[in-house]
């Protein structure tokens, strides 16, 4: 699950999940809930693979979201479902979604970038929590 929290000029995403894989998937859903007014309209008909190297969870989260943003900006790929596998060397992910179709997908906001400001991935009792602020 994820929630959106406020930050004066920008917006934050807070994700919570039982494991890291789910945490990264939920953070990605949070990101596209900011971009798209109707995220449920995206059909998982196209698949893309993403590999990111790194062993610091906060850098990995940053790079993962930045890569999704880059692919959206250049290939206009809207992802809706995420399968993330994190191991000691980095992250492997499959994202499923479809090409942007302005007749069905209503775009809300331009997320310019992911920021390091307040970036945090932590274990909180029996769950994982991630916080990231994005530049609008």
């Amino acid at each position: 699950m994820y929630e959106i929290f406020e930050h004066t000029a920008d917006v934050g995403i807070r994700a919570r999940a039982g494991d890291l894989n789910g945490l990264f998937a939920d953070a990605a859903k949070g990101l596209f809930s900011l971009i798209l007014a109707n995220p449920d309209s995206v059909r998982p008909v196209q698949e893309t693979h993403i590999r990111i190297d790194g062993d610091q969870y906060d850098d990995l989260l940053f790079d993962w979201l930045a890569e999704l943003l880059y692919r959206f900006d250049t290939d206009h790929l809207l992802p809706a479902e995420f399968e993330v596998r994190i191991d000691a060397a980095g992250l492997d992910a499959t994202a499923r979604g479809e090409q942007l179709d302005r007749s069905r997908h209503q775009l809300d906001r331009e997320v310019k970038a992911i920021t390091y400001h307040g970036l945090d991935v932590r274990r909180d009792a029996d769950q994982w929590v991630a916080e990231v602020i994005v530049d609008i």
């Binding site: 930050h7 004066t8 000029a9 920008d10």
Partner: peptide
């Protein structure tokens, strides 16, 4: 000025 990330705006 208002709250930014790192530097204020």
């Amino acid at each position: 000025i208002h709250w930014g990330y790192g530097f204020c705006i």
